[in-house]
């Protein structure tokens, strides 16, 4: 099931991962024995109906939540959060009391980085995300798209080997979302980081990923996988109207749809 061309050592291995929450009505199984391996440099998306536990899975990989089973990065089991895994959240999670520039440099504060290098990192990333002239604004003065660009830049400043993206463009309008996807794709093609992305947007998953995993409704299980082998050199407007893109998009959409319908039947409410 691995895509051609990007196969190398396993960067992330998720083995027999289950997560349950205790609620007032007993224990609730959110994720049920998920196994998933990401190769170095691979871009994997997890798509599924809402409430299927896909974000929970990402938080476990991030080390923010504990669960049964194993998560290994470079063959070593994780113990909590680490700088090897950077995360971008749907609602940006910028520090509202810091300016754009200081948000981007936040992660370097506790590292022994000379001032000149810090300035260089900030200038480069502010250029990459196209926010020159906004360095000294506070997050509340920015649009949603600008905030998300700052959040991505803040994570990139720490240069993590793995990027965890939690519905990163879910709160953006359609036009901004497409621009941001193109930006992310460019960054990924440049840096070839290992990416695990949660999304409910099927086109987004097909457009960005090497591989798409479909998650069932609660308890979340990976029920189907799709390899994506599209010509990344094509511009978006050609790619998204091409036959292979749409064939795959429809197949993924139907798979997610089946899960959503099954969920609606199982849980009328």
């Amino acid at each position: 099931m691995r895509p051609a061309g990007t196969v190398s050592d396993a960067k992330i291995e998720i083995r027999g991962l289950s997560k349950s929450y205790s609620t007032g009505h007993g224990s609730l199984l959110a994720i049920d024995t998920v196994d998933l391996t990401l190769a170095e440099g691979e871009f994997v998306s997890i798509v599924g109906p809402s409430g299927c536990g896909k974000s929970t899975l990402l938080y476990v990989v991030g080390g923010f939540l504990s669960a049964d089973g194993d998560v290994l990065v470079d063959g070593t089991p994780i113990r909590g959060p680490g700088t090897d895994r950077g995360i971008v959240f749907q609602d940006y999670a910028l520090f509202p009391w810091l300016t754009v520039r200081r948000n981007i440099l936040f992660g370097l504060e506790r590292r022994d980085v000379p001032q000149a290098e810090r300035d260089a990192v900030a200038d480069r990333l502010i250029g990459v995300i196209g926010l020159k002239g906004f360095e000294h604004r506070y997050p509340r003065e920015l649009s949603g798209g600008m905030r998300q660009r700052v959040a991505i830049a803040r994570t990139m400043a720490c240069d993590p080997a793995v990027l965890l993206l939690d519905e990163p463009f879910g709160a953006l309008d359609a036009q901004t979302r497409e621009m941001m996807q193109d930006e992310l794709l460019r960054i990924w093609l440049d840096t070839r980081k290992t990416v695990l992305m949660i999304t409910h947007d099927v086109s987004e998953a097909v457009y960005l990923s090497n591989r798409i995993c479909i998650m069932s409704a609660r308890p979340g299980r990976i029920v189907e996988e799709f390899s994506v082998d599209l010509d990344r050199t094509l511009p978006r407007e050609e790619l998204v109207v091409s036959e292979p893109f749409n064939r795959l998009r429809n197949a993924v959409w139907l798979s997610v749809r089946r899960q959503a319908v099954a969920a609606a039947h199982a849980d009328p409410g």
Binding site: G62, P81, G82, I87, F89, D91, A93, E109, R154
Partner: peptide, 25 residues
């Protein structure tokens, strides 16, 4: 918010380091 704490944790900050930078702010 959890996401602020998690963001700082993912950048390597300990609880103690987050006190002045995140919680008090």
């Amino acid at each position: 918010p959890k996401v602020l704490v998690w963001s700082a944790q993912a950048m390597g900050f300990s609880d103690r380091e987050m006190l002045g930078r995140v919680f008090l702010m």
